[in-house]
Every structure is written in structure tokens, then in C-alpha cells.
Design a binder for these strands. Structure first.
Lengths: 112, 112
DNA sequence: CGGGATGCGCAACCTTTGATTGCAGATTCG
DNA sequence: CGAATCTGCAATCAAAGGTTGCGCATCCCG
């Protein structure tokens, strides 16, 4: 019942910059710290640190290619993260629905 | 297409302590900084700061009651946050599915 | 009604993290 | 070869999460 979420995965996905990086990587298939930074309002070094975080969380993999380093999304791991988002959302949603049911029941009983 | 997420709402929900606070508030209906801190591994003051964040994001409301201050979840706003979680998840999910379809198509064409 | 217990809010301080600038090493390309 | 480009490392900074230490209001009970 305690929503059993992997906090590392969640916090990797919790940062807005990292979410946009994942969006970009998914859209283009791959990218480097430099190319990503061209589409985001932060410096290449900040991007590099975020890539390190995503790498540690297993959400991206990287391969050196000459003088640059290419990153790509690990689809299976991102799917896991998506599933966790859905889990937390579903848990809250269920509680909200239950609350609504109870509120309606009270209203009905008061209408008697 | 840019996942149009309210970053304030998301970042309010992005913190693990705040997520657990919302869980507790949903479970009990209401609570104070002190009661919440009894179920969490942080001090009352830390909880109070988180409550201020959640309040600014509109996810909770508070009413003074004697010497204590009761907080409760704003269900409509939490529902909005849940919807945003679902949106981001769905967007990534769709991209992952598309990638998978393409990969399968390539495999099929190579099998010719 | 007075005093201890309980709850809250404010302030100072510490640590972590997202972000910056600066620089040196490696690789590509004209 | 030499200039351009990409990377990685280090120092520095500001914001955020967390803590301790008060002072003040409210409740409760003898």
C-alpha cells in the first residue's frame, strides 16, 4: 500500500531539465551533452551532470564515438519509470475516488 | 507536444517526503505538521516547510483550529497533478511504443 | 486561576544539488 | 600542422531540504 517507489528512479525523472533531456533523446534517438545543451536553457556542463545522474539511474546508456560521447535512452528502464508514475497516480486516484464515494454516501444519508 | 506540464505542481509532487505527506493526508483526511512528523523521519519544522510548498502549489488547504493548524488535501488540485503524471507517462509510453514498432518493422524488412 | 504541557512560527545554520565559469586534454578537419 | 570542436575536471555559487534553538499562544488539569 505504501506506493513502493524506487526513489532513485523517481528523483531522476523528477527534475524538469532531466525530463526535457529524456524528451529530446526520445525524439532524436540519441544525442551528446553538447547537442542537448543547444536545445535547453542550461550549459553543457550542467547537462553533463544530469546525464551522469540519468546514467546512474540506468535511464540512459552512453558510447564513446571519437571525440564525442553519444547517449541514448534505455527503453526498458524508462518503461519501468513510466510504470511507477502510473502506479503512484493510480494509488492517489483510487483514494480520491473512494473519498468521493464516501462524500456522496453521506449526502445521500443526509437526504433521508 | 511538449508535455506542457506545470513545473510547480510537478516539483511539489516530485519530493519523496511531500509525496508521503500527501499519502498520509489522504489516508487520514487531515493532519497537522506535528501529527505528520510523527509518521515521517524528519522534524516538524521540515514538515512545516513542505506544507508551505504544498500550500503554495494549491495541493493542500489549511485552517487554524485553536493552537493547532489542520491541513487537508485539495482534491481537485491533486487530481490535476495526477492527470499531469499520467500525461507525461502517456507521452513517453507513446514514444516507446513507436520506437518498438519501428524496430520491429526493421527486423521484418531484414528478414526478407 | 495558575502553571506545565503541547503546538506553532521564526531565525540561524549546515549540507546537498543544480548551475555557472574557467581551463586543459583529445580528436577531427581544412 | 594548426585551428576548431568536443569532452572532462575543478572551484565557486545559489537554492532547497534538513536541523537545532528559541519565544509565544493555547489548552488542560490540579
Amino acid at each position: 500500500m505504501s506506493t513502493a517507489v524506487d526513489d532513485d528512479l523517481w528523483s531522476a525523472v523528477g527534475d524538469p531539465t532531466r525530463r526535457r533531456m529524456l524528451d529530446l533523446l526520445l525524439a532524436d534517438g540519441r544525442g551528446t551533452a553538447t547537442t542537448l545543451s543547444r536545445h535547453l536553457p542550461v550549459t553543457r556542463q550542467a547537462i553533463a551532470k544530469h546525464l551522469a545522474v540519468l546514467d546512474r539511474a540506468g535511464l540512459v546508456r552512453s558510447t564513446p564515438a571519437g571525440r564525442e560521447r553519444l547517449y541514448e535512452v534505455d527503453e526498458a528502464q524508462l518503461a519501468r519509470a513510466v510504470a511507477q508514475l502510473a502506479d503512484v497516480g493510480a494509488a492517489w486516484d483510487a483514494r480520491l475516488r473512494r473519498i468521493k464515494r464516501i462524500a456522496e454516501a453521506i449526502q445521500r444519508s443526509q437526504a433521508d
